[in-house]
Design a protein around this nucleic acid. Structure first.
Lengths: 143, 143
DNA sequence: CCGAAATGTAATAAAACCAGTTACAGAAGG
DNA sequence: CCTTCTGTAACTGGTTTTATTACATTTCGG
């Protein structure tokens, strides 16, 4: 699995926005976020665009524009971020249809689908236990 | 995330081997497994090779060779299969080092590491609740 | 109302990964 | 010894990911 870093980038952006907010800066541009994440501003705009579509951040256009959180960071859980930025299921099924003349080939896809669904639920449940505020607190504790 | 199908292929192979075993065929060649999964025998040999290194199957070489389970299918849990075939962590950290002059950039990686570790544990715990025998039973129930 | 500043998005590129395929050396049973 | 099958390397086509450039669009501030 080519593990992507979409969740990492989105959480980093949100945590940084939460810290800036605490310091009185309610809005950040994609350039400012990109400077902390150390990537290209377009990557940040794409990621924050996903979060905007999920209702987690809002944006103002034009000159003096910027991004801001729509909720206090205590009320943004990582599962919402996960759902906002991650589209693919965790495990892929067969790329080509299995042999339907084999009893295993016939029935395995729904069986796997239910197992995979349960595993994803467990993952999402665990992510739901952590908020952006939690991540920020742990981040600032690291000396 | 380009979700790969390694877990699917490995579980399919093991379920098929479990069914064959129940029918008196203790050994299968990679060609026979590939016929059910509907893929190339080399893919199966690579997958079963991972499972062999994890101790879940054994192989005999040469003419009349084949693969067999080393344990009853009730005692093979999906988390063992997952660990055998999946090397990458679920979520990638930053591809390039974040800006260490930013307090968030400095501390976020260990913070995310601990969150991601917990999420993976939850996933693995859930996968541990299902065995190859469970998958086979559900597979055969699907009409 | 004009210009500056910022977003949204398309197009492109390089790197990585995945599934599939061919090929072949090596092992081992008969 | 010969046949069969594994183990693995090499390569291919396709997809994904991150990064980058470019530009039309939006809107604030003066």
């Amino acid at each position: 699995m080519a593990a992507n870093s979409r969740l990492t980038i989105a959480v980093h952006a949100l945590a940084w926005m939460a810290l800036a907010q605490r310091q009185g800066r309610d809005e950040l541009t994609s350039d400012q976020v990109a400077a902390s994440v150390n990537t290209n501003p377009v990557i940040i705009r794409r990621s924050l665009g996903d979060l905007r579509r999920a209702g987690l951040v809002s944006v103002r256009h034009g000159a003096g524009a910027g991004w801001s959180l729509t909720r206090p960071p205590e009320e943004i859980s990582l599962v919402e971020v996960y759902d906002a930025v991650e589209r693919e299921p965790l495990f892929g099924l067969h790329r080509t249809e299995p042999n339907l003349e084999c009893p295993v080939g016939r029935g395995i896809r729904p069986a796997l689908g239910s197992v995979y669904g349960g595993a994803e639920q467990a993952l999402r449940r665990e992510l739901g236990r952590t908020s952006i505020a939690d991540v920020l607190r742990e981040t600032l504790q690291a000396k």
